[in-house]
Amino acid sequence: MSAKLVFLGRLEDIAGMGELAVNPGPLEQVLAALDPALAIELLGERVRMALNGALLGDGGGVILAEGDELAFLPPVSGG
């Protein structure tokens, strides 16, 4: 089994996909296996994360387990 990364908004465009199955483990390890340009975007200070539907304060110490879903939410703009 695996964990899943979900990319929303402009992050989906940057990733070239809406979601990606990854091996479970520490977030730093998961991001290190991604394209460096995508990892940099995902770590942007205005990008929020939600683990299994719950918003996280920051990404420090996140360890993905099998079946987890980590969504990356870009900043929202509107007018």
Rank of each mutant, 00 (worst) to 15 (best):
Pro26Gln: 01
Leu42Ala: 09
Gly18Met: 02
Leu38Lys: 03
Met17Lys: 13
Glu19Tyr: 10
Ile40Asn: 06
Asp13Lys: 13
Ile14Arg: 11
Gly78Phe: 01
Glu19Asn: 15
Asp35Phe: 01
Asp35Val: 00
Ala15Thr: 06
Gly25Ile: 01
Ala54Met: 12
Arg10Phe: 14
Gly9Val: 09
Asp68Ala: 04
Val62Tyr: 03
Ile63Pro: 00
Ala15Met: 10
Leu73Gly: 01
Ala21Gly: 08
Asp68Lys: 07
Glu12Arg: 15
Glu12Thr: 13
Gly61Lys: 13
Leu27Thr: 00
Asn23Trp: 00
Pro75Trp: 12
Gly67Cys: 02
Asn52Met: 06
Glu69Phe: 01
Ala39Gly: 03
Asp58Ile: 07
Ala32Thr: 04
Phe7Arg: 13
Val76Cys: 06
Leu20Tyr: 05
Leu43Asp: 14
Gln29Ala: 15
Asp68Arg: 05
Glu69Thr: 08
Gly78Val: 02
Ala50Gln: 06
Asp58Glu: 08
Arg46Thr: 12
Ala15Arg: 10
Leu34Cys: 01
Pro26Asn: 02
Leu73Pro: 00
Pro75Val: 04
Gly18Val: 02
Gly60Ser: 10
Val62Trp: 03
Gly18Arg: 14
Val30Thr: 07
Phe72Ser: 12
Ala39Glu: 01
Pro74Phe: 12
Gly60Glu: 13
Ala37Arg: 10
Leu43Lys: 15
Gly44Thr: 10
Ser77Arg: 02
Gly61Val: 07
Ala37Val: 11
Gly18Phe: 05
Asn52Thr: 04
Leu8Met: 05
Pro36Cys: 09
Ala32Ile: 08
Glu45Ser: 15
Arg10Pro: 14
Gly25Glu: 01
Val76Ser: 04
Ala65Leu: 11
Arg10Leu: 13
Glu28Leu: 05
